[in-house]
Design a protein around this nucleic acid. Structure first.
Ligand SMILES: [Zn+2]
Ligand SMILES: [Zn+2]
Ligand SMILES: [Zn+2]
Ligand SMILES: [Zn+2]
Lengths: 151, 151
DNA sequence: ACCTCGGATGTTATATTGTTACATTGGCAA
DNA sequence: TTGCCAATGTAACAATATAACATCCGAGGT
Protein backbone atom coordinates (compact mmCIF):
# COMPACT_ATOMS: atom_id res chain seq x y z
CA UNK A 1 0.00 0.00 0.00
CA UNK A 2 1.42 3.40 -0.87
CA UNK A 3 1.77 6.07 1.79
CA UNK A 4 -1.29 8.05 0.68
CA UNK A 5 -3.49 5.00 1.01
CA UNK A 6 -1.88 4.10 4.31
CA UNK A 7 -2.62 7.52 5.75
CA UNK A 8 -6.17 7.29 4.52
CA UNK A 9 -6.54 3.85 6.11
CA UNK A 10 -5.17 5.14 9.40
CA UNK A 11 -7.53 8.14 9.39
CA UNK A 12 -10.33 5.75 8.68
CA UNK A 13 -9.30 3.47 11.54
CA UNK A 14 -9.12 6.41 13.91
CA UNK A 15 -12.63 7.52 12.98
CA UNK A 16 -13.89 3.98 13.36
CA UNK A 17 -12.40 3.61 16.83
CA UNK A 18 -13.68 6.99 17.93
CA UNK A 19 -17.19 6.00 16.87
CA UNK A 20 -16.87 2.77 18.81
CA UNK A 21 -15.48 4.44 21.91
CA UNK A 22 -12.24 2.46 21.86
CA UNK A 23 -8.72 3.88 21.87
CA UNK A 24 -6.45 3.54 18.88
CA UNK A 25 -3.33 4.26 20.88
CA UNK A 26 0.09 5.08 19.48
CA UNK A 27 1.42 1.53 19.67
CA UNK A 28 -1.70 0.12 18.08
CA UNK A 29 -1.44 2.66 15.31
CA UNK A 30 2.22 1.77 14.78
CA UNK A 31 1.40 -1.92 14.36
CA UNK A 32 -1.51 -1.11 12.06
CA UNK A 33 0.72 1.12 9.95
CA UNK A 34 3.41 -1.56 9.70
CA UNK A 35 0.82 -4.03 8.47
CA UNK A 36 -0.70 -1.56 6.02
CA UNK A 37 2.54 -0.47 4.40
CA UNK A 38 3.50 -4.09 3.79
CA UNK A 39 2.10 -5.87 0.79
CA UNK A 40 2.87 -9.17 2.48
CA UNK A 41 1.78 -10.69 5.78
CA UNK A 42 4.06 -10.11 8.76
CA UNK A 43 4.68 -12.39 11.72
CA UNK A 44 4.36 -11.14 15.29
CA UNK A 45 8.10 -11.32 15.89
CA UNK A 46 8.85 -9.60 12.61
CA UNK A 47 6.52 -6.81 13.74
CA UNK A 48 8.37 -6.76 17.02
CA UNK A 49 11.67 -6.21 15.18
CA UNK A 50 10.21 -3.47 13.04
CA UNK A 51 8.87 -1.67 16.13
CA UNK A 52 12.37 -1.23 17.52
CA UNK A 53 13.47 2.36 16.95
CA UNK A 54 9.88 3.56 16.95
CA UNK A 55 9.05 2.09 20.36
CA UNK A 56 11.60 2.03 23.17
CA UNK A 57 11.86 -1.57 24.30
CA UNK A 58 9.10 -3.67 22.80
CA UNK A 59 8.53 -7.18 24.14
CA UNK A 60 6.27 -9.94 22.82
CA UNK A 61 3.25 -8.80 24.85
CA UNK A 62 3.59 -5.36 23.31
CA UNK A 63 2.89 -6.62 19.84
CA UNK A 64 0.45 -9.36 20.80
CA UNK A 65 -1.68 -6.89 22.72
CA UNK A 66 -1.78 -4.50 19.82
CA UNK A 67 -2.67 -7.38 17.51
CA UNK A 68 -5.42 -8.57 19.85
CA UNK A 69 -6.98 -5.13 19.79
CA UNK A 70 -6.71 -4.72 16.02
CA UNK A 71 -8.11 -8.19 15.43
CA UNK A 72 -11.06 -7.48 17.72
CA UNK A 73 -11.78 -4.27 15.86
CA UNK A 74 -11.54 -6.06 12.53
CA UNK A 75 -8.71 -3.82 11.37
CA UNK A 76 -6.33 -6.72 10.74
CA UNK A 77 -6.65 -10.41 10.06
CA UNK A 78 -4.60 -13.37 11.17
CA UNK A 79 -3.53 -15.93 8.61
CA UNK A 80 -3.59 -19.12 10.64
CA UNK A 81 -1.67 -21.18 8.12
CA UNK A 82 1.20 -18.68 8.07
CA UNK A 83 1.25 -17.48 11.69
CA UNK A 84 1.19 -14.01 10.25
CA UNK A 85 -1.00 -10.94 10.07
CA UNK A 86 -2.32 -8.59 7.40
CA UNK A 87 -4.12 -5.28 7.41
CA UNK A 88 -7.74 -5.58 6.38
CA UNK A 89 -8.40 -4.11 2.96
CA UNK A 90 -11.98 -3.08 3.73
CA UNK A 91 -12.52 -2.63 7.46
CA UNK A 92 -15.59 -0.44 6.87
CA UNK A 93 -18.04 -3.19 7.54
CA UNK A 94 -18.00 -6.51 9.40
CA UNK A 95 -17.21 -9.32 7.00
CA UNK A 96 -16.17 -12.93 6.60
CA UNK A 97 -13.49 -12.86 3.98
CA UNK A 98 -11.26 -15.39 2.29
CA UNK A 99 -7.58 -15.29 1.57
CA UNK A 100 -5.69 -16.39 -1.51
CA UNK A 101 -2.11 -17.04 -0.46
CA UNK A 102 0.66 -17.42 -3.04
CA UNK A 103 3.21 -19.87 -1.70
CA UNK A 104 5.66 -18.70 -4.34
CA UNK A 105 5.88 -14.92 -3.88
CA UNK A 106 4.02 -14.72 -0.58
CA UNK A 107 1.41 -12.28 -1.79
CA UNK A 108 -1.96 -12.46 -0.08
CA UNK A 109 -5.25 -11.30 -1.57
CA UNK A 110 -8.27 -10.74 0.62
CA UNK A 111 -11.50 -11.44 -1.19
CA UNK A 112 -15.02 -11.16 0.07
CA UNK A 113 -17.25 -13.68 -1.61
CA UNK A 114 -20.52 -13.32 0.24
CA UNK A 115 -22.03 -16.27 -1.62
CA UNK A 116 -19.23 -18.52 -0.52
CA UNK A 117 -19.52 -17.38 3.08
CA UNK A 118 -23.23 -17.99 2.94
CA UNK A 119 -23.00 -21.49 1.49
CA UNK A 120 -20.40 -22.31 4.11
CA UNK A 121 -22.74 -21.16 6.83
CA UNK A 122 -25.60 -23.08 5.28
CA UNK A 123 -23.57 -26.28 5.07
CA UNK A 124 -22.92 -26.02 8.79
CA UNK A 125 -26.50 -25.21 9.63
CA UNK A 126 -27.59 -28.40 7.88
CA UNK A 127 -26.04 -30.39 10.73
CA UNK A 128 -26.96 -27.94 13.48
CA UNK A 129 -23.63 -26.17 13.55
CA UNK A 130 -23.67 -22.48 14.45
CA UNK A 131 -20.93 -20.62 12.61
CA UNK A 132 -18.96 -17.94 14.43
CA UNK A 133 -15.75 -17.46 12.50
CA UNK A 134 -15.20 -19.14 9.15
CA UNK A 135 -11.54 -19.45 8.24
CA UNK A 136 -10.79 -19.77 4.55
CA UNK A 137 -7.19 -19.69 3.39
CA UNK A 138 -6.47 -20.95 -0.09
CA UNK A 139 -2.86 -21.91 -0.70
CA UNK A 140 -1.69 -21.86 -4.29
CA UNK A 141 0.03 -19.60 -6.79
CA UNK A 142 -1.00 -16.13 -7.90
CA UNK A 143 -1.59 -15.02 -11.48
CA UNK A 144 1.76 -13.29 -11.71
CA UNK A 145 3.72 -16.30 -10.49
CA UNK A 146 1.78 -18.60 -12.80
CA UNK A 147 2.69 -16.38 -15.75
CA UNK A 148 6.33 -16.38 -14.72
CA UNK A 149 6.30 -20.16 -14.38
CA UNK A 150 4.73 -20.68 -17.80
CA UNK A 151 7.21 -18.55 -19.74
CA UNK B 1 -13.99 -43.95 17.01
CA UNK B 2 -14.60 -47.35 18.59
CA UNK B 3 -11.95 -50.06 18.46
CA UNK B 4 -13.59 -52.04 15.68
CA UNK B 5 -13.66 -49.00 13.43
CA UNK B 6 -10.11 -48.12 14.41
CA UNK B 7 -8.84 -51.55 13.44
CA UNK B 8 -10.68 -51.34 10.17
CA UNK B 9 -9.18 -47.92 9.50
CA UNK B 10 -5.70 -49.22 10.25
CA UNK B 11 -6.13 -52.23 7.95
CA UNK B 12 -7.35 -49.86 5.32
CA UNK B 13 -4.33 -47.58 5.79
CA UNK B 14 -1.98 -50.54 5.55
CA UNK B 15 -3.51 -51.67 2.29
CA UNK B 16 -3.36 -48.14 0.96
CA UNK B 17 0.31 -47.76 1.80
CA UNK B 18 1.16 -51.17 0.37
CA UNK B 19 -0.51 -50.20 -2.89
CA UNK B 20 1.46 -46.97 -2.96
CA UNK B 21 4.75 -48.65 -2.14
CA UNK B 22 5.29 -46.65 1.05
CA UNK B 23 5.93 -48.04 4.50
CA UNK B 24 3.40 -47.67 7.28
CA UNK B 25 5.94 -48.37 10.00
CA UNK B 26 5.17 -49.17 13.61
CA UNK B 27 5.59 -45.62 14.85
CA UNK B 28 3.48 -44.21 12.07
CA UNK B 29 0.80 -46.72 12.85
CA UNK B 30 0.93 -45.82 16.53
CA UNK B 31 0.39 -42.15 15.77
CA UNK B 32 -2.39 -42.94 13.33
CA UNK B 33 -4.07 -45.15 15.92
CA UNK B 34 -3.83 -42.45 18.58
CA UNK B 35 -5.50 -39.99 16.25
CA UNK B 36 -8.18 -42.46 15.22
CA UNK B 37 -9.18 -43.51 18.73
CA UNK B 38 -9.60 -39.89 19.74
CA UNK B 39 -12.79 -38.09 18.87
CA UNK B 40 -10.99 -34.80 19.31
CA UNK B 41 -7.93 -33.29 17.64
CA UNK B 42 -4.60 -33.88 19.35
CA UNK B 43 -1.56 -31.62 19.42
CA UNK B 44 1.87 -32.89 18.46
CA UNK B 45 3.14 -32.73 22.02
CA UNK B 46 0.05 -34.40 23.37
CA UNK B 47 0.72 -37.21 20.88
CA UNK B 48 4.27 -37.28 22.13
CA UNK B 49 3.06 -37.79 25.69
CA UNK B 50 0.67 -40.54 24.66
CA UNK B 51 3.46 -42.35 22.83
CA UNK B 52 5.46 -42.82 26.01
CA UNK B 53 5.05 -46.35 27.21
CA UNK B 54 4.43 -47.57 23.67
CA UNK B 55 7.63 -46.13 22.25
CA UNK B 56 10.87 -46.09 24.26
CA UNK B 57 12.05 -42.50 24.27
CA UNK B 58 10.07 -40.41 21.83
CA UNK B 59 11.30 -36.92 20.99
CA UNK B 60 9.63 -34.17 18.98
CA UNK B 61 11.08 -35.32 15.63
CA UNK B 62 9.61 -38.75 16.30
CA UNK B 63 6.08 -37.46 16.22
CA UNK B 64 6.59 -34.75 13.62
CA UNK B 65 8.10 -37.25 11.19
CA UNK B 66 5.20 -39.61 11.63
CA UNK B 67 2.77 -36.73 11.16
CA UNK B 68 4.57 -35.56 8.02
CA UNK B 69 4.23 -39.01 6.53
CA UNK B 70 0.59 -39.39 7.48
CA UNK B 71 -0.25 -35.93 6.17
CA UNK B 72 1.46 -36.67 2.86
CA UNK B 73 -0.51 -39.87 2.53
CA UNK B 74 -3.74 -38.06 3.34
CA UNK B 75 -4.37 -40.26 6.36
CA UNK B 76 -4.54 -37.35 8.78
CA UNK B 77 -5.27 -33.65 8.57
CA UNK B 78 -3.81 -30.70 10.36
CA UNK B 79 -6.12 -28.11 11.85
CA UNK B 80 -4.16 -24.92 11.39
CA UNK B 81 -6.30 -22.87 13.72
CA UNK B 82 -5.81 -25.35 16.59
CA UNK B 83 -2.24 -26.53 15.99
CA UNK B 84 -3.64 -30.01 16.21
CA UNK B 85 -4.22 -33.09 14.14
CA UNK B 86 -7.11 -35.42 13.34
CA UNK B 87 -7.43 -38.76 11.58
CA UNK B 88 -9.10 -38.51 8.20
CA UNK B 89 -12.59 -39.95 8.19
CA UNK B 90 -12.49 -41.01 4.53
CA UNK B 91 -8.93 -41.48 3.33
CA UNK B 92 -10.04 -43.69 0.43
CA UNK B 93 -9.84 -40.96 -2.13
CA UNK B 94 -8.03 -37.64 -2.45
CA UNK B 95 -10.24 -34.82 -1.26
CA UNK B 96 -10.43 -31.19 -0.18
CA UNK B 97 -12.51 -31.26 2.94
CA UNK B 98 -13.78 -28.70 5.41
CA UNK B 99 -13.80 -28.78 9.18
CA UNK B 100 -16.47 -27.68 11.59
CA UNK B 101 -14.79 -26.99 14.91
CA UNK B 102 -16.82 -26.60 18.09
CA UNK B 103 -15.04 -24.13 20.34
CA UNK B 104 -17.18 -25.28 23.24
CA UNK B 105 -16.68 -29.06 23.41
CA UNK B 106 -13.77 -29.25 20.97
CA UNK B 107 -15.44 -31.72 18.65
CA UNK B 108 -14.38 -31.57 15.02
CA UNK B 109 -16.44 -32.74 12.07
CA UNK B 110 -14.84 -33.32 8.70
CA UNK B 111 -17.23 -32.67 5.84
CA UNK B 112 -16.63 -32.96 2.15
CA UNK B 113 -18.70 -30.47 0.25
CA UNK B 114 -17.48 -30.83 -3.31
CA UNK B 115 -19.60 -27.92 -4.47
CA UNK B 116 -18.03 -25.64 -1.93
CA UNK B 117 -14.53 -26.75 -2.86
CA UNK B 118 -15.34 -26.16 -6.49
CA UNK B 119 -16.75 -22.67 -6.04
CA UNK B 120 -13.71 -21.81 -3.96
CA UNK B 121 -11.46 -22.97 -6.77
CA UNK B 122 -13.53 -21.07 -9.31
CA UNK B 123 -13.39 -17.87 -7.28
CA UNK B 124 -9.60 -18.09 -7.32
CA UNK B 125 -9.41 -18.91 -11.00
CA UNK B 126 -11.38 -15.75 -11.77
CA UNK B 127 -8.31 -13.74 -10.78
CA UNK B 128 -5.75 -16.16 -12.16
CA UNK B 129 -5.06 -17.92 -8.89
CA UNK B 130 -4.15 -21.61 -9.10
CA UNK B 131 -5.44 -23.46 -6.04
CA UNK B 132 -3.27 -26.12 -4.42
CA UNK B 133 -4.57 -26.58 -0.93
CA UNK B 134 -7.78 -24.94 0.25
CA UNK B 135 -7.99 -24.62 4.02
CA UNK B 136 -11.49 -24.31 5.44
CA UNK B 137 -11.96 -24.37 9.20
CA UNK B 138 -15.25 -23.11 10.53
CA UNK B 139 -15.20 -22.13 14.17
CA UNK B 140 -18.51 -22.18 15.99
CA UNK B 141 -20.62 -24.43 18.15
CA UNK B 142 -21.90 -27.91 17.37
CA UNK B 143 -25.52 -29.03 17.48
CA UNK B 144 -25.11 -30.75 20.83
CA UNK B 145 -23.58 -27.70 22.51
CA UNK B 146 -26.21 -25.42 21.00
CA UNK B 147 -28.92 -27.64 22.46
CA UNK B 148 -27.23 -27.62 25.85
CA UNK B 149 -26.90 -23.84 25.75
CA UNK B 150 -30.56 -23.33 24.83
CA UNK B 151 -31.99 -25.47 27.63
C1' DA C 1 -6.83 21.09 40.63
C1' DC C 2 -7.12 16.50 42.81
C1' DC C 3 -8.69 11.73 43.21
C1' DT C 4 -9.78 7.45 41.61
C1' DC C 5 -10.50 3.63 38.84
C1' DG C 6 -9.84 0.85 34.97
C1' DG C 7 -7.56 0.26 30.73
C1' DA C 8 -3.00 0.34 28.65
C1' DT C 9 1.82 -0.58 29.02
C1' DG C 10 6.42 -2.38 31.06
C1' DT C 11 8.98 -6.35 32.38
C1' DT C 12 10.37 -10.96 33.26
C1' DA C 13 9.72 -15.41 32.79
C1' DT C 14 7.71 -19.39 30.83
C1' DA C 15 4.72 -22.35 27.83
C1' DT C 16 3.80 -24.32 23.39
C1' DT C 17 4.82 -25.56 18.74
C1' DG C 18 8.09 -26.85 15.31
C1' DT C 19 12.95 -27.43 13.08
C1' DT C 20 18.04 -28.41 12.30
C1' DA C 21 21.83 -31.24 12.34
C1' DC C 22 24.15 -35.21 12.70
C1' DA C 23 24.75 -40.00 14.29
C1' DT C 24 22.82 -44.71 14.04
C1' DT C 25 19.97 -48.33 12.60
C1' DG C 26 17.54 -51.41 9.57
C1' DG C 27 15.37 -53.26 5.45
C1' DC C 28 16.12 -54.34 0.69
C1' DA C 29 18.39 -55.42 -3.45
C1' DA C 30 22.59 -55.99 -6.54
C1' DT D 1 27.95 -59.86 1.50
C1' DT D 2 27.93 -55.28 0.53
C1' DG D 3 26.06 -50.95 -0.37
C1' DC D 4 22.50 -47.87 -0.26
C1' DC D 5 18.75 -45.18 1.26
C1' DA D 6 14.88 -44.59 4.13
C1' DA D 7 13.72 -44.52 8.95
C1' DT D 8 14.91 -43.60 13.58
C1' DG D 9 17.71 -41.75 17.73
C1' DT D 10 19.42 -37.77 20.03
C1' DA D 11 20.56 -33.13 21.33
C1' DA D 12 20.14 -28.64 20.70
C1' DC D 13 17.62 -24.80 19.15
C1' DA D 14 14.17 -21.66 16.74
C1' DA D 15 9.66 -19.61 16.39
C1' DT D 16 5.24 -18.56 18.23
C1' DA D 17 2.44 -17.32 22.12
C1' DT D 18 0.97 -16.58 27.02
C1' DA D 19 1.17 -15.78 32.25
C1' DA D 20 1.86 -12.98 36.04
C1' DC D 21 2.55 -8.92 38.28
C1' DA D 22 4.11 -4.09 38.54
C1' DT D 23 3.46 0.53 36.83
C1' DC D 24 1.61 4.20 34.25
C1' DC D 25 -1.76 7.13 32.27
C1' DG D 26 -6.03 9.31 31.05
C1' DA D 27 -10.98 10.19 31.23
C1' DG D 28 -14.59 11.36 34.47
C1' DG D 29 -16.25 12.72 38.91
C1' DT D 30 -15.47 15.77 43.07
ZN1 LIG E 1 -10.98 -7.81 5.99
ZN1 LIG F 1 2.87 -15.19 -6.42
ZN1 LIG G 1 -10.06 -36.29 5.07
ZN1 LIG H 1 -19.74 -28.84 20.90
Amino acid sequence: MNSTLVNRALKHAEALCRRRGVRLTEQRKIVLRLLCVSDKPISAYELLDRMRGVVKNPAPPTVYRALDFLLEQGLVHKLESLHAYVGCTHPDHPHASQFLICDDCGEVTEVEDAGLAKSLKTAGKAIGFRTKRPIVEVLGTCAQCNAKRDE
